[in-house]
Design a protein around this nucleic acid. Structure first.
Lengths: 217, 217
DNA sequence: GTCTATAGCAGGATAGAC
DNA sequence: GTCTATCCTGCTATAGAC
């Protein structure tokens, strides 16, 4: 039993450290030596547990990324369920809040989006899984959810562009912290995150013409 | 003279091939051997012309990325100048068109945004130059440009969030082609790019509430 | 300025003891 | 399952001929 748990812990540690490093620096910039050093285990452990480096990368997506994405989606759905009636504003707010504040820790959220961005920039095997099983279905579902609220009949693609526009903002404010901080001068504290959620909701609902939502100095 | 031009051509070739490879796969995934092979020159050429690999990467930003960004900004400004009176719609349309269609070839545009995304994800020395000299000033300028059109007095940061929301869409539709194609099923042809420009303008101006702009099936 | 040859080292992966 | 020791490949960078 102690054996088993120690095994799990060791494999788990490698996964976690690998994810942090892959997210921050990308697959090629990270070495197996670094990962095992960070996980306080032996160099051979990666090959023993995962076969090779590439497969460790894939396992990061299978075992950590995907469950986490599901937690975010679950939060989104719980927020919707809590609303007595479904409104456009309610839907968009749930998306923004789930993704920008949501169930993830700050570090988790950053890592999560960095990994996703890397896959979007240069798809590997993980891309197909991520888009096919999580991102794609979520976006299609969201599209159908907002469809009844649209002013006029709208094609599937046009609807998806609207969804992607909301998502692109969410991704941007999560992943592109460096330029956001650099340009706005703000820090990612709770106050700022609240302002971001508010901003995304307001901008998504009525764009620049409704501009009056942000109460950030 | 033939000497000089040949030199320039050789150095130039390395720069161009390096950019394509760095954009597509990132700094660490690309080897000097690959670059020189692609540029049809010798392995030692990179070190001769650029000192080392890292500096070649920086030169890509200094010599190719920055001038290209300026071409896009110039196009944006020319489009504004051509309008008889400055409107919010005119400004946003100029941004969307300059970035999504603009003066760049399709490959150039993809490379350009991939490099930028990589720097945002993991800043190197190039980040400071890119944000400090190009992206930052452009966004601040754009913010001041839209300020008079805002319904109420708006803080500097709130204004920048609006600008970044527009930019985030533009970036997304340029750089995240893989998921966009995968999810919408569209190809990046001229018709689709026109639809994207239209969509970005409409969404930026009035968000979901004004939804009626996209005429994509 | 361009090439070949090679130094010098770091990487992933594995064999085999424990 | 974990460790040490090691193989071997492939990398950056440079020396030196042309």
């Amino acid at each position: 039993m102690a054996e088993t748990s120690k095994v799990k812990i060791s494999k788990e540690r490698i996964l976690r450290e690998a994810e942090a490093l892959f997210a921050e620096r990308g697959f090629y910039a990270v070495t197996v030596r670094e990962i095992t050093r960070a996980a306080h285990c032996n160099l051979a452990a990666v090959n023993y547990h995962f076969g090779n480096k590439q497969n460790l990368y894939l396992e990061v997506f299978r075992c950590l990324w995907k469950p986490r994405a599901k937690r975010v989606v679950a939060r989104f759905e719980r927020m919707l369920a809590a609303q007595r009636e479904l409104t456009l504003q309610g839907i968009v707010h749930a998306v923004a809040e789930a993704f920008i504040k949501g169930p993830l820790s700050d570090d988790e959220r950053l890592r999560h989006h960095q990994l996703m961005i890397r896959e979007m920039a240069r798809p590997t095997e993980a891309f197909e899984m991520v888009v096919g099983e999580v991102i794609g279905p979520f976006q299609r579902k969201l599209a159908e959810m907002i469809r009844p609220f649209m002013a006029r009949e709208m094609g599937r693609v046009a609807l998806l562009l609207h969804v992607q526009s909301i998502i692109s903002m969410v991704i941007h404010f999560n992943f592109a912290r460096n330029p956001v901080i650099r340009i706005t001068g703000m820090e990612y504290d709770d106050v700022f995150k609240d302002a971001l959620v508010k901003h995304v909701v307001q901008f998504s609902l009525s764009g620049l013409n409704g501009a009056g939502g942000g109460d950030v100095p």
